[in-house]
Structure formats: structure tokens, C-alpha cells
Design a protein around this nucleic acid. Structure first.
Lengths: 225, 225
DNA sequence: GATAATTAGTAGCGGGCGGACACTAAGTCA
DNA sequence: TGACTTAGTGTCCGCCCGCTACTAATTATC
């Protein structure tokens, strides 16, 4: 297995595609963009043939921007996976990207928001990719402004906290959440307030991160295995 | 192994390859496995044509095991990148894997350990991949037993701490490091001691993680951007 | 209107963790 | 024998994080 063929053409794989897990919070639940009624075995995720010219991230960004009609709030590559030869496109290799968009993003024609935690029946490989994508969001949300990009330009701190709770899958304590947020210099208050249903109106904030260079985490051993 | 015509690459994605960033601690420095004298523009990383059958992780694991003569201590996929059409194989897509092996691993014929932080001249894309790989190790070493798998079966706690310091790029405090390690139930002492040069002999430990279910991290906002 | 209910936001307490210093232990080297 | 080097531990202290309890401001209900 360590040998190389005389010509690269021998092991030439079939075409590769891009696949997108696009997440948003819709109706208070985490939702993912799916193409409906695509195959008998279940829905598909948005996909596109891969443009091999230029950086992959740039190609993916262009495609997603065209698909959604707007640039995603945040996007990253999840990884490459073999399709097992079962993807409708005939591709054997798929590079999966994960994106988040604000709640008010309209799904493109032919697509719909599906609940990420009770999605419509998906083929096992795509279900696995979806789970991995949500886990990837959860793992990175303390290093990248993922939650902030799932919100409009101004938002209440309760809305922000709800996004964190949805992605983390557990309740958070209000006071602790706000204290940590304040210490991180990530948001600044606006002079606007919003009254939503019952209860006291909430102040609106905007995402305005300050410098904060060189925050060194303590070493932690959190491996469970 | 000449370049593939640009038209063929544009018509459909050309072949893809696997590329490996294999790290170890050699002579007290972080080292990466490189193939020497491969091209005039600089060294290359180990690579192989991609086997499109079966899961990518399994294909990569088989290849790396054959290359090194032993299974890597730990391995994960870093991501997929376009080569810019400049890889000697003619591939336009490369899937990069990162692996770590213990210090006593002999480089295969034609390969050598190069210092990861002052590597031989590498083409810019490969240099970028190498940097991203080291950063990936640093980011994941508190969630995966990366440091432990760069050591032999038994090791001293000072050796373990030195691996953390190399990957994190900063000194750690001995007492704090051991306290956190103890609290995580990751190692157990053996009854062997090792005297290395001057100073008091150090007790040898082995990696023996215990259960530790459900350690919930506090929410932290560490995004700098 | 008065009162309850609901949501927003803050104050303060207490435990635990992590960084620092200081110390002991046990070997090598002159 | 004493200086030096490395291993390993005890302890203090400040800060972070979770919790409880409180105030503030609006809507719903009678």
C-alpha cells in the first residue's frame, strides 16, 4: 500500500463535490438547510461540483454566496469524506463545509429549513455528516463568532444566550454568561430596547469585539477516552 | 510524473492525493517527516494517491501504517486543500492527515525528520499546511491523547510536560501541570524509576485514562477577532 | 386600577481552580 | 563533603464560576 503507481492516472478518483451544512436558528430550534424530495432514500444537503481552480475556501464561499443570495455569516471546512459511491452526483469524494446564517435568511427555491435534531430521514452517511457539523459548531463557538453570526446586527443578550444553549445542548446561568461576555469585550450596548411579549424590555447589543491579545488558557486535560 | 494538461484539470477535477504531516519529538524539538531532495523548489511531505474505495480515514490509516511500518500513535484529518496545480503528482486536490508517533520511530527510507519550526525550504502552500497541522495539534491536545502518543509506553511527567510545552510554545508550571493531570485521572504510576543524567530519578508513569464522564466546561469567549 | 406573572438585569457569597513561591528529596559532579 | 541539578509536594492567594437572591419593567388578569 505504500507503493506509488507509475502514473498518477491509475488511481484517478472520480469527480469531487462540495456539500454544505448550513445552520440557522428558526422558530427557536436549530435548523439545517435541506433539499426536499430529492431521492427516495431521503433528503439531500445542498451540493455543487467542485471547482478545482483556486483555493477551496474561496470556491466554496462563492458557491454559497450564490446559493443563498448573501454571504454566510460564518463558514469553515469540516473535512473531506468518501461518499461510498452513493451520492446522486456520482462523486466519490465530498468536501463538506459548515456555514451559519442569521435567522431571517430565506431558504432558496427548492430548499427548506429542517430541524437539525429531528431532521427528515437522511441516508446514514449524510446523517453522520450533519451530526459532525453540529458538533463542529459546538466545539468552535468559543473561538469563532459563530453565535453572533446567527443573529441580526443587533440582538438581546437573552437571544445570544439561547443560541449558546441550543448549540451546547444545556442551560446556562444568566449571570455567569453575562459576566464572561463582559470580560471578553465582545459586545457593546446600543441605546435601543426591544419589548418582546411579556416582561421587561431587553437592551439591544451589537457585536463589537475589542483587541484582547494574548489570552492564554490554562492547560486542561479533558480527554475522556 | 509531469504536469497534467490544464484543460483536463478544468474539465473535471483531476486526481486527489493524501498528504501526511507526521510529527514526533526528536532531540527535544518538534520534528516533521519530510521527503528529501524531491524537487528543486524544496522538500515534499509524504504523499500517496487517494484510494476512493471505503472510508477515507481507513484508507489513510492503512497507507500510513505501511509507510511507517507501524500504526501511528494518533491521527486525524486536517482537511482538504487545492494544490494550485503545483503538486508534482499533478493532483489538484489534496487531503491532509496529521499523525503523531513516538520519538523512537525510525524514518522510512528516503525520508528524514526535519525541525518543524525551522523546516527546510518548502513551497509556500506546503509550509502553510505544516503550520496549520501544528496549530491543529495544539488546539486538540487537550481533547485527544496527542502528547501521550508521542511518548513510549512509560514516561516521566517531565517528559510529558516538555511535549506540552513544545506544542503550546510556552513554559508551564510544574505543580499546576501535575495537579491538573492528577485531577483528570489520565496516568498511573509504575514502580519503575529512571535516572537521566544529573538530578533525582523520576518515576515512570503509563497512560491509563479512567472514566470521567460528563465534565462540562464553563462557557468561555476566547475569540480575538 | 391593583395584583400576579413574566422576563431583564444586578449584587454578593462561596467553593474551586490555577499561578506563584518555597520547600524537601535524591541523584551526579567537583 | 558540599555544590549543583532535577523530581516532587505543600501552601497561599486571587480570580473565576455557579448559585441564590434581589430589583426593574412590562404584560396579563380580575
Amino acid at each position: 500500500m505504500g507503493d506509488r503507481p507509475a502514473t498518477a492516472a491509475r488511481a484517478r478518483p472520480g469527480p469531487a463535490i462540495l456539500e454544505l451544512v448550513c445552520c440557522a436558528v428558526v422558530d427557536g430550534r436549530l435548523a439545517v438547510l435541506t433539499e426536499r424530495g430529492r431521492t427516495a432514500r431521503g433528503g439531500t444537503l445542498p451540493w455543487s461540483p467542485l471547482d478545482p481552480a483556486g483555493p477551496l475556501d474561496a470556491s466554496a464561499a462563492r458557491w454559497v454566496r450564490g446559493l443563498l443570495g448573501r454571504a454566510p455569516g460564518w463558514m469553515t471546512q469540516l473535512g473531506a469524506f468518501s461518499t461510498g459511491g452513493r451520492h446522486p452526483s456520482g462523486a466519490v469524494l465530498t468536501v463538506v463545509y459548515v456555514a451559519v446564517v442569521p435567522s431571517d435568511t430565506e431558504p432558496p427555491a427548492g430548499f427548506a429549513w429542517s430541524p437539525a435534531f429531528e431532521p427528515p430521514p437522511l441516508p446514514p452517511r449524510r446523517q453522520w455528516v450533519l451530526d459532525a457539523a453540529v458538533a463542529g459548531l459546538r466545539d468552535r463557538m468559543d473561538l469563532a463568532p459563530i453565535a453572533f453570526r446567527m443573529l441580526p446586527a443587533t440582538f438581546t443578550l437573552s437571544e445570544l444566550q439561547r443560541i449558546y444553549e441550543l448549540l451546547l445542548g444545556r442551560r446556562l446561568h444568566k449571570a455567569s454568561f453575562r459576566r464572561a461576555l463582559q470580560a471578553a469585550f465582545l459586545v457593546e450596548p446600543t441605546d435601543a430596547w426591544r419589548s418582546e411579549g411579556r416582561g421587561r424590555p431587553a437592551q439591544l447589543y451589537r457585536y463589537a469585539p475589542r483587541k484582547r491579545r494574548g489570552v492564554r488558557r490554562p492547560v486542561r486535560f479533558e480527554l475522556l477516552a
